[in-house]
Amino acid sequence: MLPISVAKVAEVIILARELDRAEPEFDGLVNALNAEEQAALVAIYWIGRGTYDADDLDEAMATATNEATTPTTEYLKGSPLLATHLEAGLDALGIDATEEEDRLIKPV
């Protein structure tokens, strides 16, 4: 079980796609996450880019927690493929964020 909701990850994905226009919103959202949620976000990103396998989620989260030297917002914004890697990480974990992304983009 991820310590971050799929809805929060989906919102980060959406904002990451529009980072040039939505950087303050991205920063606000990521900074509002607690430390465990931020570590999970980084771990999902790492899984999506192939640094870790989905089976290594706990190890990736521990590494993200123990080796964090840069603010999470700055670290994640350093990747031009952030949204793609987050989606791939969720997919590798067997989670589909499409419904959450659609709900956030097209509120009912």
Rank of each mutant, 00 (worst) to 15 (best):
K8Y: 06
L19C: 00
I4L: 12
E67G: 01
D96A: 13
V42M: 00
M61R: 01
D55C: 09
A83S: 08
P3F: 04
L19Y: 00
E99G: 05
D96K: 07
D56Q: 09
A54R: 08
A43V: 00
E25I: 08
V30N: 02
E74A: 14
E11F: 12
I44G: 01
L2Y: 06
G28P: 00
E11N: 13
P3Y: 01
T84Q: 13
A22N: 09
N66E: 15
E23W: 06
A54K: 10
D20R: 15
T72S: 04
A97K: 05
W46I: 01
E99Y: 13
F26L: 10
F26W: 13
P3M: 03
E36M: 10
K77D: 03
D27R: 07
L2W: 08
S5K: 10
S79D: 05
A97R: 09
W46Q: 14
A7T: 10
A7C: 07
G89L: 04
Y52I: 11
Y45I: 03
S5V: 05
E67A: 07
I95M: 11
D20A: 15
V108T: 14
P107G: 12
D27W: 04
G50H: 09
A68H: 07
L29Q: 06
N31S: 14
G50C: 12
V108E: 15
D27V: 05
D20G: 07
L76C: 09
E11H: 15
T73W: 01
L57S: 08
I4Y: 02
L93A: 12
E36Y: 11
G48N: 08
A92Q: 11
A83N: 04
A88L: 14
L104V: 07
L82G: 04
G50Y: 08
E37Y: 02
L33Y: 03
T84W: 09
L2V: 09
V108Y: 08
P3D: 03
W46T: 01
M61N: 00
E36D: 15
D58C: 01
G48S: 12
I4G: 03
R21Q: 13
G28I: 01
I95Y: 02
R17N: 11
R103K: 10
S5W: 04
G28H: 05
G78P: 03
E100Y: 14
L41H: 01
A83F: 03
E100F: 14
T84P: 02
P80Q: 07
I95F: 04
A60H: 10
M61S: 00
D55T: 15
A60R: 08
D58E: 13
L29P: 05
L2I: 12
L41G: 00
L82W: 06
K8P: 07
D58H: 07
D96N: 15
G89C: 04
E37G: 15
A54V: 08
H85A: 07
P80C: 06
S5Y: 03
G78H: 06
D20P: 01
G50I: 10
T65S: 10
D58F: 02
P3G: 00
V6P: 05
L90R: 02
A64N: 06
D20I: 13
W46C: 03
L41E: 01
T65K: 08
A7N: 08
V30Q: 00
E100K: 12
K106C: 00
A35S: 10
